[in-house]
Amino acid sequence: MKINKSETKVQMVNRREHKALDIRVGGEKIKEVQEYKYLGSLITRDGRNQKEIRSRIEQAKRVFFQKGQVFRAKIDLGVRLRFLRAYVWSVALYGCATWTIGTLDRKRIEAFKLWCYRKMLRIKWTEKVRNEEVLRRIRGDRVIWKMLVKRRTRMIGHNLRHPVRLATVLEGMVEGKNWKGKPRQSYEDQILKIQGASPLYI
């Protein structure tokens, strides 16, 4: 196997600060990075999804502006909403099946949804229209969140039904003691909370 040393980077995912890694190939030290893109998703050193979610929303907003004439055209609202899901929300939700989403992240996603609706309805921020009124005009509610939950549920179900290594990781236990302080919400716990189930494998 040949390794391109100039293109190779290393990263340690850790909750705590750590000393710089000293990994060498052929006597040359490999650069350590805080974050990197893998298959279109942003992987950060702290193992969280906040930066990835913000990045996805920014990319989706750029797509919205690029296709702005379609979303503001005088065509049926239902057709424009389907365009929104196909062109914009598909970008925003790329890789969402692997996200562990906190309260602030969910609010950010919901705010992005309302931002799209307001732009489509040409509602200016100076008009001071409440979110409830926007949803009434658009005849929609939490569609983007339902799409996210559906994708995540499909992925976890697919992985747990097949004997793949990822299923072993999801079901496995990590050795050692817990960190001090409030534990992070785990991917498994969040799925159970949303689905209203008790055991994971039902």
Rank of each mutant, 00 (worst) to 15 (best):
L77P: 02
R56K: 13
A60F: 07
Y94N: 10
V70W: 14
I53M: 01
L77Y: 06
G78T: 14
V70F: 12
F64E: 02
K61D: 00
A92V: 04
R82H: 12
R54E: 15
E52Q: 15
R72G: 02
R56Q: 12
K67D: 06
A60S: 13
V88C: 08
A60D: 01
V70Q: 09
W89N: 05
K67T: 14
G78A: 14
R62G: 08
L93W: 02
G78M: 13
Q69Y: 15
R62N: 03
F71Y: 14
R54F: 03
A86G: 05
E52D: 14
G95R: 08
R56M: 06
R80I: 11
G95P: 11
A60I: 01
K61T: 10
R56V: 05
R82E: 11
A86C: 12
L81K: 15
R80W: 08
G95M: 10
F65K: 11
L84F: 09
E58A: 08
A60K: 03
R80F: 11
R80V: 11
L81E: 05
A60P: 03
F64K: 04
E58Y: 03
L93C: 06
R62F: 03
S55M: 09
F83G: 01
R56P: 02
K67W: 14
A73V: 07
F64C: 03
K67V: 13
G95T: 07
V88H: 01
A92R: 05
Q69V: 15
L93I: 05
R72E: 12
Q69A: 14
W89R: 00
F71M: 09
Q59I: 04
R54K: 13
R54H: 08
L81G: 07
L84Y: 08
G95W: 09
R80Y: 09
A73I: 08
C96T: 00
D76K: 14
S90C: 12
V91K: 09
V79A: 12
A86D: 01
Y94T: 02
R82V: 05
V91Y: 05
V88P: 03
V63K: 09
E52Y: 08
A92H: 02
F65N: 01
K61N: 10
R54M: 11
I75D: 00
I75K: 07
R80E: 07
V88I: 15
I57Q: 01
Y87A: 14
Q66G: 03
R72H: 13
Q66A: 13
Q66K: 13
W89G: 00
G95S: 08
R80S: 03
K61F: 04
Y87H: 12
V91C: 06
R80G: 01
F64L: 15
R72V: 12
V91S: 02
R62Q: 05
Y87C: 13
I57T: 02
K51I: 06
Q69H: 15
R54C: 06
